[in-house]
Write a protein that binds this DNA or RNA. Structure first.
Lengths: 252, 252
DNA sequence: GCTTGCCTGCTGGTCTGACAAGCAGGCCGC
DNA sequence: GCGGCCTGCTTGTCAGACCAGCAGGCAAGC
C-alpha cells in the first residue's frame, strides 16, 4: 500500500496551465490579443497579482509575447516560439552544463554536416514537383564575404548568414534551432579568435575561409552530399584547431 | 542618419536578467537557495510584486525550481533544465505544428551517429594513458532488454538507458545534453508506437530492436566508427519509418 | 479643409500593506 | 525523552491605489 504525495499547485500555475492549453489547442489563435489582465481576473476569479504571475510564466515560455507597453499580450505564433525562448533555453542549458568549447565545436560539426548533406541530397533529388532548396541566400552571403576584405565584423555577419542559410536550406527546423543555439554559445569565442589576429594574418585567414565556403557551396549545388559533409567538417574543425584551440591553451 | 528606437524594459525583466546571469555564470550555484523574496526586494530596491514576477519568469525557464510551499526557490542544475522546460518547449513546438516529428528524428539520427562514431573511434584509438570509454553501462542495458520480453515499459527503460549510455560513452557533454532534450520530447511518441502494437507483434519488434542494439554495440566495441554510425542511423530511422510514420499518417 | 492640442478612458507596470497557510526551530511541561 | 505549543520565518494571495503611456474623440485655430 502506497499513498501518493499530495500535490498542491498554486493558483498562478493553474491559470497559466489553462491559458497554455487554450493557446496550444488553438482556442486562442496566434496573433490574437489575450484578454486584459483585469478581464482575466474576473474570468478566473483571482487577483491581478495571480494573473500577472501566470502571464509572466507564459511569456517566459514564449507562448505569449508583449504587445507593447500598454497593449495586452499577444499569443505567439510558432515562429517566435522557436526563435526566442526555446533557443535561449538551449543556450542556457549549454552554459549551465559548463560544456567545453571543443564539445560544442564537435556538436556543431555533426549538425552542420548533417544539414549540408541533406541539402545536397535535396539538390540531387530535386524534381519539378519537389524543387531544390534555394541557395540564393547562401550565395549572397558568400558574395558579401568576398567584399568584406579586412572588415572583420562584416565578414563575421556574412559568415553567420552563410552558415545559417545552408542549415535553412536543409529544411530541418529542429537542426536549425539547435544550430542557432550552438552558434550563439560559440559566437563569442569565434569573434575573439578572429579579432586577436593581426590585420595581415586576418586578411589571409579570411581569404582561406572564403575559399572553403566557396568549395562547400559548390559541393551542395552539385548535389554531392558526402563531399559537402566532409568539407564542412574540415572547415569548422580546421578553424577551431588553427585559431581557437591555441588561444585556449595559451589562456591557461 | 538613423535613430535607434528607444528600448524600455520593465523592472521585473531587469531583475530576472540579473538573477539569470548570476545563475548562469555560477555566482549562484546549482542547488543553492535563492534569497527570500523580501530580501531580493531590498537588494534590487523594488517591490515584492516585481520580484515575484521575475521569479515566475525564471521558474518558467527552468533556471529556478520551487523548493516547496514555504521554501525559497532553488537554483536548477543542468539536468533539470533539459528534462523540464526545454522538453516542454519542444513539445509545444510539435503541437503547434512548426517542427515535424520527422525533423526531430533526423536530428536525433545526426546526434547519435556522431556520438557512436566518436565512441567507436575512441575505442580504436585507446591507449594505456587514454583508456577506451566504458561500455559496461551499455552492456548492462542490453542485458536488461533481453530479459524484458514483452515487458514494454521495462524494455523502454532499458532502451533509454542503452542509448544514453552510448552517448555518454562518447564523452561529449554538448551532444549528451541536446540528445536528452530531443529524446524526451520524442519519447512520448515512441511509447505510443510500441504500445499500439499487439503483444505478439511487439514481442517480435522488441527482438529485432535488441538485435540491432547488439550489432551497434559490437561495432562500437570493435572500434568501427563508420559501421556504428550507419547502424544507429538505420536503427533509429528504421524504427521511425516502420512504427511511427504510419501512425502519424493514419492520424490525419 | 487640415492640423494642433487637449481630454478621457483604457492598458500595463509598480507599489503598499495586509492576511492566511505552512514549515522549522526552540522551549516548556510532563 | 517526548509530545505539544508558540514564535518567526517563508511563500501564496488579495485588495486597492497610483503612474505613465497610448488611442480615440472632439473642439479650437490655421
Amino acid at each position: 500500500m502506497s499513498f501518493q504525495s499530495v500535490v498542491r499547485s498554486p493558483a498562478y500555475e493553474q491559470v497559466a496551465a489553462q491559458l497554455r492549453e487554450a493557446i496550444l489547442d488553438g482556442t486562442l489563435a496566434a496573433g490574437d490579443e489575450l484578454p486584459a489582465e483585469r478581464e482575466l481576473c474576473a474570468q478566473f476569479d483571482v487577483s491581478r497579482t495571480t494573473v500577472r504571475e501566470a502571464l509572466r510564466a507564459l511569456q517566459a515560455q514564449g507562448l505569449a509575447i508583449s504587445g507593447g507597453p500598454t497593449a495586452p499580450l499577444r499569443v505567439a505564433g510558432a515562429e517566435s516560439l522557436s526563435s526566442g525562448p526555446l533557443r535561449d533555453g538551449l543556450v542556457h542549458l549549454l552554459r549551465l552544463g559548463r560544456v567545453a568549447l571543443a564539445d560544442l565545436v564537435e556538436l556543431r560539426c555533426a549538425l552542420e554536416a548533417a544539414a549540408v548533406a541533406r541539402a545536397a541530397d535535396a539538390v540531387a533529388a530535386a524534381t519539378a514537383a519537389d524543387p531544390a532548396p534555394d541557395l540564393a541566400e547562401a550565395h549572397a552571403a558568400l558574395a558579401q564575404m568576398r567584399v568584406a576584405d579586412g572588415d572583420l565584423d562584416g565578414f563575421e555577419r556574412a559568415d553567420v548568414a552563410f552558415h545559417l542559410a545552408l542549415v535553412r536550406a536543409a529544411g530541418n527546423d529542429a537542426i536549425e534551432l539547435v544550430m542557432l543555439a550552438v552558434r550563439d554559445s560559440i559566437g563569442a569565442h569565434l569573434r575573439d579568435a578572429l579579432h586577436a589576429r593581426s590585420a595581415r594574418a586576418a586578411s589571409a585567414a579570411l581569404r582561406q575561409l572564403t575559399a572553403e565556403h566557396d568549395a562547400l557551396l559548390s559541393a551542395i549545388a552539385a548535389g554531392e552530399g558526402e563531399t559537402a559533409a566532409r568539407v564542412v567538417r574540415d572547415h569548422v574543425l580546421g578553424f577551431y584547431t588553427a585559431a581557437i584551440a591555441p588561444q585556449e591553451a595559451a589562456a591557461r
